[in-house]
Computed example of a mutant assay.
Amino acid sequence: MAKVPAPFTGDDELPYEAADETAVDERAFFAEQSTQAISHGQPAKEEHYHGHRERLRNRFREHGDTALADYELLELLLFRLIPRRDTKPIAKALIERFGSLAGVFGAATPLLREVTGVGEAVALDLKLISTVAHRTLKSELRGKQVLASWSSVIQYCQAAMAHETREQFRILFLDKRNALIADEVQGLGTVDHTPVYPREVVKRALELSATALILVHNHPSGDPTPSRADIDMTKMIIDTAKPLGITVHDHIIVGKDGHASLKGLRLI
């Protein structure tokens, strides 16, 4: 017997899309339960969370995000991703598992899927939103004098790297006006080490006609305190770049617990 599509109500922000039979996600599952109820002649009932959703929307509409806790903001988003389920428990579980909103959006897709109620589709949607946020922050730097927008640099680096589970070594390449030319991840490492080769860093800078660099890497442990290896590596890059007219403005280390600037700490 052909399936009867679930009715689309005012509270359903998205119409039901049939799931692939080989990859049923949580949205399809709950829509299927609604379909089965109708097929057995059971009248559709008003779920208890419908009124809650509208109240939460009204609070946000009237008072903005300051009236909502982090899990409630996440709940508002999940309304659209999971139309037919109480999303409060899922939002709270995500915050508890990853510690913060930033932790949720920075989490890897497989880790997101470990949370009950989050399947492939929702995990992908959360990563898409995270990517849009990163691109927005990055666009704030494009074409501007980066040194005059230092807070934007820090925000971007933290959003892009603070919650990575492996070390990344990233370089912001700047022109003679200190405007951003390129932002590239030069290396991926383990949980506590990334191989960095000063000659390759300088070679890439020359290819891009960059005259200045900002080095960035993350500490998956969360603690951004520079190690002796971090300091020594930075000095090697500075010594390699300087004779070629390339300045290293800073080396920023980011983690879940904050960030550290080697220049600010007078380590370079």
Rank of each mutant, 00 (worst) to 15 (best):
D175W: 03
R228I: 08
T9F: 13
F60P: 00
G10Q: 14
V248A: 06
T109C: 06
S221T: 12
E32D: 15
R59C: 02
L78W: 01
H40Y: 08
V146L: 14
L213M: 07
D12G: 00
E184Y: 12
R53G: 07
T22F: 13
G189S: 05
G10H: 13
I253V: 13
I38F: 05
P83K: 09
L73M: 09
E140F: 13
E47F: 09
A229L: 12
V202Q: 02
V122E: 09
D257F: 05
F29P: 00
R177L: 12
T131L: 12
G117F: 09
D12A: 12
P5D: 01
G41A: 02
A123C: 06
E120T: 10
P110G: 04
L74T: 00
E184D: 14
Y16A: 14
R170D: 13
A91Y: 00
A182R: 11
V4P: 01
P226N: 07
K242P: 01
L265N: 04
F30C: 07
A6Q: 03
R266M: 13
L128N: 08
T211R: 03
K242D: 05
T66F: 10
A44F: 05
R57K: 15
L206V: 07
L78T: 01
E13L: 15
A93G: 09
G103E: 10
G64S: 05
R135G: 01
I171M: 07
H163I: 03
L126C: 01
L112I: 07
Q168D: 11
A102R: 12
L56A: 04
H193Q: 14
A133M: 13
S151E: 15
K176T: 14
I95Q: 04
G99A: 10
P110M: 10
F60V: 05
R97T: 15
S130L: 03
K263C: 06
I181L: 15
V132I: 15
N218Y: 02
D20F: 04
P198Q: 05
P83D: 12
G51C: 00
V4W: 11
E96R: 13
R27E: 14
I268T: 06
A212L: 01
Q42R: 12
A179L: 04
E140I: 02
K92E: 14
K3F: 07
L14I: 15
V201M: 03
F105V: 07
R113E: 15
G264N: 02
P243G: 13
I38K: 08
L215Q: 06
T190Y: 03
D257P: 00
L265K: 11
V118L: 09
A107V: 05
H251V: 02
H52L: 10
L265C: 07
T22W: 12
Q158S: 10
L124G: 10
D12Y: 08
T165M: 07
S100E: 08
D65F: 09
H193E: 11
S34A: 11
R80K: 09
L267T: 02
R59V: 00
A18W: 12
E140K: 13
K235Q: 15
R204C: 03
T190N: 03
K127G: 06
A123M: 05
H50E: 11
A133N: 11
P89N: 07
R204W: 04
V4S: 11
A69I: 04
A159Y: 06
A93D: 11
I214D: 02
I253D: 01
T87Y: 00
